[in-house]
């Protein structure tokens, strides 16, 4: 069984505001002083794949697929060390964020998947941690004409049957479909495992395939459906905090209750 996990490299989403610099000429956000990382939900997707592999290590192969202007081996190394078997990157100087909406991205991913050979299951993240579009999984399923289950917090494969637990706002539901399929994974599934020393050493020897846009049989970037008009930095709240600085913290707590009472809040 082959599982393809689509993973995107993004500037660390936890970085401070100053590190996201708007460049409106190139219509992009230039990260400054923050490292690229694996997009958060894609780590959850990889964990879901590895749990399927845990049950049948000999029979399951996990491939990482990432596209971008430049995909850093160092960032993707984390995925290989955690247990993925190979990395496929598609890099091209034309892959600018301003031109890659979810449709264009999914079209490129589909082409790459076609070139990557057989697969049974494709896992994607709930949304990329930079643009939060949340659509690649469903569009990809349309192109490949296979089912897509969204918002997964549990993924289980039995023969050609795929069982998924889905996150609801007030609980969970179980749905079933057949392979091949796409599953869009949510964080409720749990964090990506931490690799041991031995796995880190072995990861360096794992195969890496590097393609560009023509290697996957595309001559140009597919047209986008939505177009970025401009980017701007939102204004921060004024910051009118009244600090309660009493002699003891217990007194400050008491004072807080009194203030809220006086405000009619409680």
């Amino acid at each position: 069984m082959r599982i393809i996990v689509c993973m995107k490299q993004v500037p660390d989403p936890e970085g401070p505001r100053e590190s996201f610099v708007v460049n409106n000429e190139e219509m992009r956000v230039v990260p400054q002083g923050i490292p690229p990382v694996l997009s958060l939900f894609d780590e959850n997707a990889l964990e879901a794949a590895l749990r399927i592999k845990d049950k049948n290590p000999q029979d399951v192969k996990v491939s990482i697929l990432s596209i971008g202007k430049r995909v850093s081996n160092a960032v993707m190394f984390k995925a290989l060390a955690a247990g993925a078997d190979e990395l496929i990157k598609v890099e091209d100087s034309q892959f600018m964020t301003s031109r890659l909406d979810s449709f264009a991205t999914a079209t490129i991913l589909a082409k790459a998947i076609e070139n990557a050979g057989d697969f049974d299951l494709i896992l994607v993240g709930r949304q990329a941690a930079d643009w939060n579009a949340g659509q690649v999984g469903i569009i990809l399923s349309g192109i490949l004409n296979i089912p897509c289950v969204t918002l997964a917090q549990g993924v289980d494969v039995n023969g050609s049957t795929l069982t998924v637990e889905r996150v609801l706002s007030n609980g969970i539901e179980t749905v079933r479909t057949h392979l091949p399929a796409i599953v869009m994974v949510s964080n409720e599934i749990g964090e990506l495992r931490y690799p041991a020393m031995k796995e880190r050493r072995e990861a360096k020897k794992k195969p890496v395939t590097e393609w560009n846009i023509s290697d996957i049989g595309l001559s140009r970037i597919p047209p986008a459906r939505i177009k970025l008009k401009r980017l701007f930095t939102p204004e921060m709240a004024a910051g009118n905090c009244l600090y309660l600085t009493d002699t003891t913290l217990e007194d400050a707590g008491r004072k807080l209750a009194l203030l809220l009472k006086a405000d009619g809040m409680i």
Partner: peptide, 12 residues
Amino acid sequence: VYSSNVMAVYEF
């Protein structure tokens, strides 16, 4: 976008 550090304006 980008953890709400940036706002993006789109047209279709």
